[in-house]
């Protein structure tokens, strides 16, 4: 069996490197925390900016960045770059070549200024009532009033650890421990689009109406996923998010949500 596990040293962190089948590569950190999410988001952003044609997708998550690549395109590019001779001699695998290229790209861009760390997105939320049917119960479990729960939720600053589950759905970390909630025993058959939800120590926002098991505490009118835009997701991994409590009649006023 070929040895496929490697390590990169990036920004003083050791990243484990291993394959996800024959068309994807995973870079993994030992533990996810605010620093590592932002580092993984930076890595993703840097690779995306250099956008080699063979690198199709870059997906940062809690402890990993998964890189989806096209081996045929990669080898074609290698040949065009006049490295054909070396390729034939070494009989190198696309996986190994991709690793070399990725490490090169990361080293080259190390220390470069980048704007991902600075994005702070404000999201207006109408807490409770019909928009947040689980707010009262969630507050009771946390031992505070509904108003206090909403205020604490809006006070915290969150980091987008990843997008997934459905297009545009952000997993937001940074929920204060006392606000943590269990998932609902029975998932709702339909959660309204824009619902702000809490489960364990995470909060999230449902981009469209789907079944869901998180506790619903409020709703926003901001569109998380817009099919008509070239970059359809409002948020991306590494963004910081603050919720701004608004009243129901203010909800349609989008306000300034990118600072």
């Amino acid at each position: 069996m070929m040895h496929v596990e490697y390590a990169f040293n990036i920004e003083g962190e050791t990243l484990r490197v291993f394959p996800l089948g024959d068309r994807a590569i995973v870079l993994a950190v030992a533990t996810g925390n605010k620093q590592t999410w932002q580092m993984l988001a930076r890595i993703a952003h840097r690779l995306r900016s250099s956008s080699p044609s063979w690198l199709e997708d870059i997906v940062p998550a809690y402890e990993t960045v998964t890189l989806y690549y096209n081996p045929f395109q990669l080898m074609k590019e290698e040949r065009e770059n006049d490295r054909g001779m070396a390729l034939r001699e070494e009989n190198k695998l696309p996986y190994k070549i991709a690793l070399d290229r990725i490490e090169g790209l990361l080293k080259m861009s190390e220390g470069e200024a980048d704007e991902t760390a600075s994005r702070l997105v404000h999201i207006p939320v109408c807490y409770g009532g019909n928009f947040g049917p689980d707010l009262e119960e969630a507050a009771a479990r946390s031992g505070v009033s509904a108003e206090a729960y909403a205020a604490l939720h809006a006070e915290a600053e969150y980091t987008v650890a990843m997008l997934g589950f459905m297009p545009g759905f952000p997993y937001l970390t940074g929920l204060p421990e006392r606000l943590a909630q269990p998932r609902r025993a029975e998932p709702r058959k339909s959660v309204a689009a824009g619902s702000i939800a809490v489960a364990a120590r995470q909060t999230g926002i449902y981009p469209v109406s789907v079944p869901g098991g998180w506790q619903i505490i409020g709703r926003t009118s901001v569109r998380l996923f817009d099919k008509t835009k070239e970059e359809p997701a409002l948020l991306r991994a590494g963004d910081r998010v603050k919720f701004v409590a608004v009243r129901e009649h203010e909800l349609d006023r989008e306000g300034k949500w990118i600072v």
Binding site: L20, A24, V26, V59, Y62, M162, G164, F165, Y171
Partner: peptide, 29 residues
């Protein structure tokens, strides 16, 4: 496990023990 990237062809095993092979329209994570 914390959520992570998956791809068509990923064979994942939910707690019940019956595998699912992800296909073209699979979720990203």
């Amino acid at each position: 496990l914390l959520s992570h990237g998956v791809a068509p062809g990923t064979v994942q095993v939910p707690p019940g023990g019956s595998p699912i092979v992800l296909a073209a329209d699979c979720q990203t994570t």
